[in-house]
């Protein structure tokens, strides 16, 4: 090898493409399709950006992972600025220990980000779920640093992304509604190649939230009624 190159390499001044740090995707998301596509699951720490309309199952996609993480330690789960009243009955029913859940109400997005950063860096929260509309690149970087410091994962749930350059997040997903679950598109993933969109089937975990596919020769009752009328 070129001695200059070798010298630079030894001094750690030279970056090579095969040096990309391997991100551990070791936490199973609880959905086999998603685990397969993400080669293991959600990252251990970092920032996840999810773009999704409200109410299609975006939170349910996270819940199994949040629950396993809660059970594996004694740290806190923090929800920041949920758009509506977060139902404690649902959390309890799913198996969360409620006294290790914090819900923060904030009055501005700057305050939300401040809280998120503090919670992440504190080291006593394993995960933060943040509802946020807009976020700038430097703010994502700050969240990243805080998450690394406190070994925590932050998930940002955003409704409609405004026109924006790519954010330096660990994982970005775009979700669409599907009768049986969610249509997931991985828009960005650190240290991996982009993959095509796929469907996550949630009907095993939530059989009630599932539209049965109806055979073509069956006419639904109200429709028939209206036809007769």
């Amino acid at each position: 090898m070129n001695p200059i190159l070798e010298h630079l390499k030894n001094k750690n001044l030279l970056w090579q493409a095969n040096h990309t740090s391997q991100i551990a995707y070791a936490n199973s998301t609880g959905f086999s399709e998603l685990d397969q596509q993400l080669q293991g699951g959600f990252p251990q720490n970092g920032v996840i950006d999810i773009e999704s309309p409200i109410g299609i199952g975006e939170l349910r996609l996270l819940l199994p992972d949040l629950l396993t993480r809660q059970q594996s330690g004694d740290r806190l789960l923090v929800f920041i600025a949920p758009p509506m009243l977060l139902n404690s009955e649902m959390l309890a029913e799913f198996g969360f220990e409620l006294h290790r859940v914090l819900i923060l109400k904030t009055i501005s997005s700057a305050q939300s980000l401040w809280c998120a950063e503090q919670c992440l860096a504190s080291g006593c929260c394993y995960s933060v779920v943040l509802w946020q509309h807009d976020i700038a690149i430097n703010q994502v970087k700050r969240l990243h640093l805080a998450a690394d410091k406190g070994d925590a994962l932050i998930t940002m749930l955003r409704q409609q992304k405004t026109v924006q350059t790519a954010l330096p997040v660990s994982l970005a997903l775009r979700l669409r509604a599907q009768p049986q679950g969610l249509h997931v598109e991985v828009t960005k993933r650190k240290g991996a190649w982009p993959s095509s969109a796929f469907t996550v089937d949630m009907s095993n975990k939530w059989p009630e939230l599932n539209c049965q596919s109806i055979a073509e020769n069956v006419v639904q009752f109200p429709n028939r009624h209206s036809q007769i009328a």
């Binding site: 806190l76 977060l86 404690s88 959390l91 309890a92 409620l98 006294h99 859940v101 914090l102 819900i103 923060l104 109400k105 904030t106 305050q111 401040w114 809280c115 503090q118 919670c119 504190s122 006593c124 929260c125």
Partner: peptide
């Protein structure tokens, strides 16, 4: 952490579900 958040947001904004 809870004290810090309460100082910033006020006591009523930091809650735990029951």
């Amino acid at each position: 952490l809870v004290s810090l958040l309460q100082a910033k947001l006020g006591e009523k904004a930091v809650m735990s579900p029951i």
